[in-house]
């Protein structure tokens, strides 16, 4: 299977802090790669570094065979990477419709077809089409954030903690949507909820103190009680 994203020994500094100290992993085309680890391990910074929001000071990121390490964020996004941040990043003063339109790189038939598809995944968004993004509930914001990333024909989606702070019933909906998205795009998912991550993940990368400490097939991790206990505090 083709490697779509290759992260090779990246180091990232934020101010004086050395946050990432050697993260390496690969995301293969058509798979869901899950980044696991405790709070503050460096999962979110890894996604931000891939997007160029907190540029790497060392190491390399390759996407679809091209080096993107030093590229500007908008160039990385235009290369085909969609990003759903942890804080959802909804534009509060724009309506749901305007949020979707801003996200569309091209307002063509294909984009509107994808919009219809994504509205099928998140019918709640249809109900609040003319409502300001800032007035949506946490779950609705999460849905809108994912819908915005999916409305473009992104080759890769980076999704950061989609279940964070959401009610179980909403988490279930979000998970169903990610499972649907998985059929047509490659996903790198950051998730604290191991049960959820293990349901949709194909491969995993364990991050601890800014370093990759383990990687492999999700099926192997599900059976490995020792690693789960040591790095995730479960099992």
């Amino acid at each position: 299977m083709k490697t779509l994203l290759k992260v090779d020994g990246i180091h990232t500094h934020i101010g004086q802090y050395h946050i990432l100290q050697g993260i390496s992993f690969e995301a293969r085309e058509g798979e869901v790669s899950v980044l696991l680890g405790r709070n503050g391990a460096g999962k979110t910074t890894t996604l931000k570094t891939i997007m160029g929001l907190t540029p790497a000071s060392k190491g390399a990121v390759q996407f679809d065979g091209q080096e993107i390490t030093k590229k500007a964020t908008y160039t990385i996004a235009n290369a085909g990477i969609g990003y759903v941040p942890e804080d959802q990043g909804i534009f509060g003063d724009l309506t749901v419709e305007e949020n979707m339109k801003v996200a569309m790189r091209k307002e063509d038939e294909a984009a509107f077809a994808r919009q219809d598809y994504v509205l099928g995944l998140f019918p709640d968004l249809k109900k609040f089409w003319k409502k300001d993004g800032g007035h949506l509930s946490g779950g609705q914001k999460q849905m809108l954030s994912m819908a915005r990333a999916f409305v473009n024909d992104s080759k890769l989606l980076l999704i950061d903690e989609p279940s964070k702070g959401l009610a179980p019933i909403v988490v279930e909906k979000v998970m169903e949507a990610i499972t649907e998205m998985k059929k047509s795009t490659t996903i790198v998912l950051v998730e604290q909820n191991f049960i959820m991550a293990s349901r949709i993940g194909d491969r995993y990368t364990l991050i601890d103190d800014g370093e990759t400490v383990h990687a492999g097939d999700m099926a192997d991790l599900i059976r490995n009680e020792e690693i789960k206990r040591k790095y995730l505090g479960i099992g």
Partner: peptide, 24 residues
Amino acid sequence: SPFGRVLVAIRENEQRTKSLGFNT
């Protein structure tokens, strides 16, 4: 216009606008 919508998006969250593919 669509241009104006991007301006509002920049005001709201510039980093997010960049990660949607806009040279802010």
